[in-house]
Design a protein around this nucleic acid. Structure first.
Lengths: 141, 141
DNA sequence: AATAGAAATGAGAAGCTTACGCATTGGCGT
DNA sequence: ACGCCAATGCGTAAGCTTCTCATTTCTATT
């Protein structure tokens, strides 16, 4: 139940938060910008302001429900946290994002952090390139 | 000679470009924002506009002279390209940035790209954490 | 159920970073 | 030394995100 998800995050259960969570769940395979979420809300005739979308997404992030990524292009994208950590490959031509996870890289990172005397809190690994998909050049949006 | 660096990049040798390159060289251990560079120019009584700083930094980036990184915090930072590729560890408390390079990780990335059918053009790996330096909590700025 | 208090929302405006337009300035080849 | 064309500076504009504050909505309480 979504309500529990929100409540456990220490947030009041409100309509905007329910709707936004719902949209993020339905688009779990995509990575959505705040604007994307807002547009989706408009399509559903929900009277939710863009400011609220940003606020809620930021709260979700703070609560660990969602992650914010800064891919190239200035606009931040959000995705629901589904438990398993992963990194991203982004196609510079069509914008497609794929996810991956490599145990070796994770271990190397820990090793490097130790060598530098750092305690790692988080990391961001993004590979940029061309997806080589025949249909790729059709940029979305 | 700096002039050669700029000329070889296909850019006209102008005073702003010289000064900005100079500042980047003198602060090679730091990672500077456009604003940082601009302030440094003001200190030196150079009549160079912020718009020019952004323009020149972007040109340096396009010419491969400098790299632009998007660490957390929205503001992009620039650093001169000194030939050898490297990634970054950023201290979330004091903002200190250290550089590293790990052959194993680089190889893993290539492997992952191949597995996903991507041709890698670039990548961004940033570790965030605490530097554990006794003097760390004195945030700069 | 009704109510009070606190938190959340919506709308617009502000803030911040970055890019742009245009008149003026300044390199660089001849 | 001269002139062309690129580069600059200033102001302004654009894009993304956050803030302000009056109003609404949730939740705990009566």
């Amino acid at each position: 139940m979504d309500q529990q998800t929100i409540r456990k995050a220490g947030l009041k259960v409100t309509l905007p938060r329910m709707k936004i969570l719902e949209i993020l769940e339905e688009n779990a395979q995509r990575h959505m910008t705040a604007e994307d979420v807002y547009k989706e809300l408009l399509l559903r005739d929900e009277e939710i302001g863009l400011a609220t979308v940003y606020r809620v997404l930021t709260q979700f992030e703070a609560a660990g429900l969602a992650e914010r990524h800064h891919f190239e292009g200035g606009q931040a994208v959000f995705e629901l946290n589904r438990g398993e950590h992963h990194d991203h490959i982004v196609c510079l031509t069509c914008g497609k994002v794929e996810e991956f996870m490599d145990e070796t890289i994770e271990k190397c990172q820990a090793k490097i952090a130790k060598k530098h005397g750092f305690t790692i809190a988080d990391h961001s690994l993004i590979l940029y390139g061309e997806c080589n998909n025949p249909k790729c050049p059709n940029r979305p949006k």
